[in-house]
Amino acid sequence: MKRIGIKKRQEQAVLKQKRPLGKRIWKARYVYLMILPVIVWFALFQYWPMAWLSISFFDYNLYLGFAGSKFVGLQNFIDFFTGLDFWRLIRNVVLMNLYSLAVAFPMPIIFALFLNELRNQKVKKAVQTVSFLPHFISMVAFVTIVTEFLSPVNGVMADIFRFFGKEPIYFLGQAKYFRSIMVFSGMWQETGYNAIVYLSAITALDMNLYEAAMVDGANRWKRLIHVTIPGIMPTVVVMFILRIGSLINANFEKMYLFQNSTNLEVSEVIQTWVYKRGMIRYDYSMGTTAGLFNGLVALLLVIMANRLSKRYSDSAGIW
């Protein structure tokens, strides 16, 4: 194979740009063919349904459709923003996610760094496998396990409390524990799985950097601080941006399953509210209004986080 210099390659790239679009597409037709199903899927299931967001401007009658529904303009938005629930929903989801961001977000990074430092491959694989498993438990089973674990009557936690001569605590019956239960159970479920992306980032690091650091006398700790962590920082930033984007999203299934009358004050979030409004009360207009608001805020948050990451880090952001 002929070696081509950088200059030559750049010239070829410029020439390629000058070719008509149709020719370029035809040239790469097999690549486009492969991506076609994804484009079709996105168009059908992600973009086409967006047309129905206009439900939020109607008093929508499910059976009669748009033709039989009354146009109400922004009334649904006014009702949603001025309703008793609005600030409570926002507060709950934001506090929950900030808590999760502060406590749960760093855990997969720490875990990946820990796994990377393990020298015994068998132990490493065993730890990795065990840590992945909770991710694959269905949410209903997962919530049942946590509920039983925390039960003040026959739960493991109750037994531990009794062993130390303390009265068991009804964790799921007190709003003040709800966020912690959500965050820490989420850590148990997702830390191992979320660490995959950081592990792959670590394995992609240039080994020459480690060798150079060793030559310079860096011990394992210093190699971790000065090579590994800076090396995976772009990945961390991208993951952070994605998390920021979902700052007002919540794990609906989990929130809903853990919800009871005593934690409703902190467990009701936009997603559970939308579900109750839309799927239980058939108030699709109000449900869609809340969902649309949720989506727009999430979009703004992602744009904001992306800009911040570009400004304050070496990362190129997501786009």
Binding site: L84, A175, S261, T262, L264, E265, W273, K276, I280, R281
Partner: peptide, 14 residues
């Protein structure tokens, strides 16, 4: 008022 009634139940239990 289904959500307000739900919140009253929450108050009662708490």
């Amino acid at each position: 008022c289904f959500d307000l009634r739900e919140q009253q139940v929450s108050l009662r239990d708490r």
